[in-house]
Protein backbone atom coordinates (compact mmCIF):
# COMPACT_ATOMS: atom_id res chain seq x y z
CA UNK A 1 0.00 0.00 0.00
CA UNK A 2 2.78 2.45 0.89
CA UNK A 3 4.28 1.62 -2.50
CA UNK A 4 1.24 3.01 -4.30
CA UNK A 5 0.98 6.17 -2.22
CA UNK A 6 3.46 8.36 -4.16
CA UNK A 7 1.92 7.22 -7.46
CA UNK A 8 -1.58 8.14 -6.24
CA UNK A 9 -0.28 11.47 -4.98
CA UNK A 10 1.28 12.27 -8.37
CA UNK A 11 -1.89 11.23 -10.20
CA UNK A 12 -4.05 13.39 -7.95
CA UNK A 13 -1.83 16.47 -8.30
CA UNK A 14 -1.66 16.23 -12.09
CA UNK A 15 -5.34 15.34 -12.33
CA UNK A 16 -6.54 18.19 -10.14
CA UNK A 17 -4.27 20.71 -11.88
CA UNK A 18 -5.65 19.51 -15.21
CA UNK A 19 -9.21 19.76 -13.96
CA UNK A 20 -8.74 23.33 -12.70
CA UNK A 21 -7.10 24.35 -15.98
CA UNK A 22 -9.92 22.69 -17.90
CA UNK A 23 -12.58 24.59 -15.94
CA UNK A 24 -10.77 27.92 -16.42
CA UNK A 25 -10.42 27.27 -20.18
CA UNK A 26 -14.06 26.25 -20.41
CA UNK A 27 -15.21 29.48 -18.79
CA UNK A 28 -12.80 31.52 -20.96
CA UNK A 29 -14.08 29.72 -24.05
CA UNK A 30 -17.63 30.78 -23.26
CA UNK A 31 -16.63 34.36 -22.40
CA UNK A 32 -14.38 34.87 -25.41
CA UNK A 33 -16.50 32.96 -27.94
CA UNK A 34 -16.44 34.43 -31.42
CA UNK A 35 -19.64 34.36 -33.44
CA UNK A 36 -19.02 32.31 -36.55
CA UNK A 37 -21.14 32.46 -39.66
CA UNK A 38 -23.03 29.12 -39.77
CA UNK A 39 -22.62 29.12 -43.55
CA UNK A 40 -18.83 28.90 -43.17
CA UNK A 41 -19.26 25.68 -41.24
CA UNK A 42 -21.73 24.38 -43.84
CA UNK A 43 -19.36 25.09 -46.72
CA UNK A 44 -16.41 23.65 -44.84
CA UNK A 45 -18.28 20.39 -44.32
CA UNK A 46 -18.70 20.07 -48.09
CA UNK A 47 -15.00 20.64 -48.81
CA UNK A 48 -12.67 17.63 -48.79
CA UNK A 49 -10.87 18.68 -45.61
CA UNK A 50 -7.50 17.44 -46.81
CA UNK A 51 -6.02 21.00 -46.64
CA UNK A 52 -4.09 20.45 -49.88
CA UNK A 53 -3.76 24.19 -50.56
CA UNK A 54 -4.51 23.74 -54.26
CA UNK A 55 -7.02 26.62 -54.17
CA UNK A 56 -4.33 29.08 -53.03
CA UNK A 57 -5.73 29.49 -49.53
CA UNK A 58 -4.05 28.11 -46.43
CA UNK A 59 -6.58 25.32 -46.00
CA UNK A 60 -10.20 24.25 -46.31
CA UNK A 61 -11.23 26.50 -43.39
CA UNK A 62 -9.75 29.57 -45.05
CA UNK A 63 -11.36 28.70 -48.40
CA UNK A 64 -14.77 28.16 -46.78
CA UNK A 65 -14.55 31.64 -45.22
CA UNK A 66 -13.45 33.12 -48.55
CA UNK A 67 -16.29 31.45 -50.47
CA UNK A 68 -18.88 32.77 -48.02
CA UNK A 69 -17.50 36.33 -48.16
CA UNK A 70 -17.32 36.12 -51.93
CA UNK A 71 -13.53 36.40 -52.15
CA UNK A 72 -13.30 33.02 -53.86
CA UNK A 73 -15.56 31.49 -56.51
CA UNK A 74 -17.75 28.54 -55.56
CA UNK A 75 -15.75 26.37 -57.94
CA UNK A 76 -12.40 27.31 -56.31
CA UNK A 77 -11.90 23.81 -54.94
CA UNK A 78 -11.11 21.44 -57.78
CA UNK A 79 -11.31 18.41 -55.55
CA UNK A 80 -14.87 19.13 -54.40
CA UNK A 81 -16.25 19.54 -57.93
CA UNK A 82 -19.15 17.18 -57.26
CA UNK A 83 -20.20 19.31 -54.27
CA UNK A 84 -20.19 22.68 -56.03
CA UNK A 85 -23.96 22.74 -56.36
CA UNK A 86 -24.48 21.93 -52.71
CA UNK A 87 -21.97 24.62 -51.69
CA UNK A 88 -23.94 27.07 -53.82
CA UNK A 89 -27.13 26.03 -52.02
CA UNK A 90 -25.52 26.65 -48.63
CA UNK A 91 -24.64 30.24 -49.49
CA UNK A 92 -27.79 30.80 -51.51
CA UNK A 93 -26.38 31.11 -55.00
CA UNK A 94 -26.57 29.05 -58.15
CA UNK A 95 -23.39 27.36 -59.29
CA UNK A 96 -21.98 27.49 -62.77
CA UNK A 97 -21.62 24.13 -64.44
CA UNK A 98 -18.40 22.78 -63.00
CA UNK A 99 -15.90 20.89 -65.08
CA UNK A 100 -13.69 18.38 -63.38
CA UNK A 101 -10.01 19.19 -63.72
CA UNK A 102 -7.11 16.80 -63.86
CA UNK A 103 -3.33 17.09 -64.01
CA UNK A 104 -1.40 16.19 -67.11
CA UNK A 105 2.36 15.73 -67.56
CA UNK A 106 3.55 17.38 -70.76
CA UNK A 107 6.37 14.95 -71.44
CA UNK A 108 6.45 11.61 -73.23
CA UNK A 109 10.22 11.20 -73.21
CA UNK A 110 10.32 7.69 -71.79
CA UNK A 111 13.61 5.83 -71.32
CA UNK A 112 13.46 4.36 -74.82
CA UNK A 113 12.67 7.72 -76.48
CA UNK A 114 15.39 9.93 -75.01
CA UNK A 115 19.07 9.24 -74.45
CA UNK A 116 21.15 9.50 -71.31
CA UNK A 117 24.16 11.79 -70.95
CA UNK A 118 25.54 10.00 -67.91
CA UNK A 119 24.44 7.63 -65.19
CA UNK A 120 23.12 9.60 -62.26
CA UNK A 121 23.71 8.34 -58.72
CA UNK A 122 22.52 10.65 -56.00
CA UNK A 123 19.52 12.18 -54.30
CA UNK A 124 16.33 10.96 -55.93
CA UNK A 125 14.50 14.29 -55.91
CA UNK A 126 13.68 16.22 -59.09
CA UNK A 127 14.08 19.65 -57.49
CA UNK A 128 17.63 18.83 -56.39
CA UNK A 129 18.55 17.16 -59.68
CA UNK A 130 17.36 20.19 -61.63
CA UNK A 131 20.20 22.27 -60.13
CA UNK A 132 22.88 19.62 -60.67
CA UNK A 133 25.21 20.49 -63.58
CA UNK A 134 23.61 19.29 -66.81
CA UNK A 135 20.16 19.41 -65.17
CA UNK A 136 19.68 15.68 -64.86
CA UNK A 137 20.94 12.72 -66.80
CA UNK A 138 18.48 12.86 -69.70
CA UNK A 139 19.73 14.50 -72.87
CA UNK A 140 16.59 16.67 -72.94
CA UNK A 141 16.81 19.17 -70.07
CA UNK A 142 13.17 20.30 -70.43
CA UNK A 143 11.56 16.91 -69.89
CA UNK A 144 10.47 14.74 -67.00
CA UNK A 145 13.41 13.91 -64.74
CA UNK A 146 11.62 10.77 -63.62
CA UNK A 147 12.48 10.88 -59.91
CA UNK A 148 8.90 11.38 -58.82
CA UNK A 149 8.86 14.54 -56.71
CA UNK A 150 5.32 15.00 -58.06
CA UNK A 151 4.38 11.46 -57.02
CA UNK A 152 5.69 12.16 -53.51
CA UNK A 153 3.57 15.27 -52.98
CA UNK A 154 0.40 13.68 -54.40
CA UNK A 155 -2.07 13.02 -51.60
CA UNK A 156 -4.19 10.77 -53.78
CA UNK A 157 -1.37 8.49 -55.01
CA UNK A 158 -2.47 9.36 -58.52
CA UNK A 159 1.00 9.74 -60.02
CA UNK A 160 3.37 6.92 -60.82
CA UNK A 161 6.66 6.86 -62.70
CA UNK A 162 6.30 4.56 -65.67
CA UNK A 163 9.37 3.96 -67.82
CA UNK A 164 11.08 7.16 -66.63
CA UNK A 165 8.13 9.53 -67.03
CA UNK A 166 5.47 10.61 -64.52
CA UNK A 167 1.99 9.43 -65.50
CA UNK A 168 -1.21 10.72 -63.88
CA UNK A 169 -4.06 8.33 -63.14
CA UNK A 170 -7.02 10.47 -64.19
CA UNK A 171 -9.48 8.47 -62.12
CA UNK A 172 -7.63 9.25 -58.90
CA UNK A 173 -6.50 12.83 -59.67
CA UNK A 174 -8.51 15.58 -57.93
CA UNK A 175 -6.81 18.47 -59.71
CA UNK A 176 -5.35 20.12 -56.61
CA UNK A 177 -2.22 21.21 -58.49
CA UNK A 178 0.31 20.23 -55.82
CA UNK A 179 2.33 18.32 -58.43
CA UNK A 180 2.35 21.29 -60.83
CA UNK A 181 3.87 23.46 -58.11
CA UNK A 182 6.64 21.02 -57.25
CA UNK A 183 7.81 20.08 -60.76
CA UNK A 184 11.06 22.01 -61.39
CA UNK A 185 10.56 21.85 -65.16
CA UNK A 186 6.94 23.03 -65.02
CA UNK A 187 5.71 20.05 -67.02
CA UNK A 188 2.46 19.53 -65.21
CA UNK A 189 -0.64 21.48 -66.15
CA UNK A 190 -4.14 21.32 -64.70
CA UNK A 191 -6.54 21.00 -67.62
CA UNK A 192 -10.30 20.42 -67.92
CA UNK A 193 -11.09 16.72 -68.01
CA UNK A 194 -12.86 17.23 -71.32
CA UNK A 195 -9.70 18.33 -73.18
CA UNK A 196 -9.49 16.01 -76.15
CA UNK A 197 -5.92 16.24 -77.42
CA UNK A 198 -2.70 17.51 -75.85
CA UNK A 199 0.90 18.01 -76.91
CA UNK A 200 2.96 15.77 -74.65
CA UNK A 201 6.14 17.84 -74.85
CA UNK A 202 7.44 20.95 -73.07
CA UNK A 203 10.71 21.52 -74.93
CA UNK A 204 11.22 25.08 -76.15
CA UNK A 205 14.53 24.16 -77.80
CA UNK A 206 15.05 24.46 -81.55
CA UNK A 207 13.94 21.47 -83.60
CA UNK A 208 17.54 20.54 -84.35
CA UNK A 209 18.35 19.99 -80.68
CA UNK A 210 15.04 18.30 -79.92
CA UNK A 211 15.69 15.76 -82.68
CA UNK A 212 19.02 14.85 -81.07
CA UNK A 213 17.67 14.75 -77.51
CA UNK A 214 14.41 12.87 -77.94
CA UNK A 215 12.80 10.67 -80.55
CA UNK A 216 9.34 12.08 -79.90
CA UNK A 217 9.73 15.77 -78.83
CA UNK A 218 7.91 18.66 -80.50
CA UNK A 219 10.11 20.41 -83.07
CA UNK A 220 7.70 23.27 -83.72
CA UNK A 221 7.20 22.41 -87.43
CA UNK A 222 3.63 23.83 -87.44
CA UNK A 223 2.19 20.96 -89.50
CA UNK A 224 -0.50 20.59 -86.81
CA UNK A 225 -1.30 24.32 -87.03
CA UNK A 226 -1.86 24.02 -90.79
CA UNK A 227 -4.04 20.96 -90.43
CA UNK A 228 -6.23 22.26 -87.62
CA UNK A 229 -9.56 23.44 -88.99
CA UNK A 230 -10.65 24.97 -85.69
CA UNK A 231 -7.44 27.03 -85.39
CA UNK A 232 -7.01 25.72 -81.89
CA UNK A 233 -3.25 25.15 -82.14
CA UNK A 234 -0.53 27.75 -81.77
CA UNK A 235 3.24 27.34 -81.87
CA UNK A 236 5.23 29.52 -79.50
CA UNK A 237 8.92 29.12 -78.69
CA UNK A 238 9.12 26.04 -80.93
CA UNK A 239 6.36 24.31 -78.99
CA UNK A 240 2.82 23.53 -80.12
CA UNK A 241 -0.05 24.20 -77.72
CA UNK A 242 -3.68 23.19 -78.12
CA UNK A 243 -6.42 25.44 -76.75
CA UNK A 244 -8.96 23.00 -75.25
CA UNK A 245 -11.80 25.50 -75.65
CA UNK A 246 -11.42 25.65 -79.42
CA UNK A 247 -10.40 22.04 -80.06
CA UNK A 248 -13.17 20.04 -81.72
CA UNK A 249 -11.42 16.73 -81.25
CA UNK A 250 -11.18 15.88 -84.96
CA UNK A 251 -7.79 14.27 -84.41
CA UNK A 252 -6.15 15.52 -87.62
CA UNK A 253 -3.23 17.03 -85.71
CA UNK A 254 -2.39 13.74 -84.04
CA UNK A 255 -2.63 11.98 -87.38
CA UNK A 256 -0.38 14.40 -89.28
CA UNK A 257 2.22 15.07 -86.55
CA UNK A 258 5.54 13.78 -87.90
CA UNK A 259 6.81 13.26 -84.34
CA UNK A 260 3.63 11.60 -83.01
CA UNK A 261 3.73 13.82 -79.94
CA UNK A 262 0.02 14.76 -79.95
CA UNK A 263 -1.95 12.32 -77.86
CA UNK A 264 -5.68 11.65 -77.59
CA UNK A 265 -6.82 12.13 -74.01
CA UNK A 266 -10.50 11.18 -73.81
Amino acid sequence: MTFFFPILKAMLVVGITGLIIGIILGIAGKLLAVKEDPRVRGVRDLLPGSNCGGCGFTGCDALAAAIVTGQAPISACAAAFSNHERIANVIGQTAEKAVRKVAIVHCAGTCDKTKLKYNYHGLADCRKISVVPGQGSKLCTKGCLGFGSCANVCNENAISIINGVAVVDRNLCVGCGACAKVCPNGLIEIIPETSKYTVQCSSTEHGKYVRVACEIGCIGCKICVKNCEAQAITVENNLAKINPELCTGCGKCAEKCPRHIIFKMV
Binding site: V14, T17, G18, I21, I24, L25, A28, V34
Partner: peptide
Protein backbone atom coordinates in the same frame (compact mmCIF):
# COMPACT_ATOMS: atom_id res chain seq x y z
CA UNK B 1 2.86 20.00 -15.13
CA UNK B 2 4.68 22.88 -16.83
CA UNK B 3 3.69 21.58 -20.27
CA UNK B 4 0.07 21.44 -19.10
CA UNK B 5 0.16 25.01 -17.81
CA UNK B 6 1.84 26.28 -20.97
CA UNK B 7 -0.66 24.49 -23.23
CA UNK B 8 -3.55 26.02 -21.31
CA UNK B 9 -2.00 29.51 -21.54
CA UNK B 10 -1.50 29.14 -25.29
CA UNK B 11 -5.17 28.17 -25.64
CA UNK B 12 -6.07 31.27 -23.69
CA UNK B 13 -3.88 33.49 -25.88
CA UNK B 14 -5.47 31.92 -28.95
CA UNK B 15 -8.98 32.72 -27.71
CA UNK B 16 -8.02 36.29 -26.80
CA UNK B 17 -6.36 36.88 -30.19
CA UNK B 18 -9.29 35.37 -32.09
Amino acid sequence: VFIMVIAALVQLVEMILK
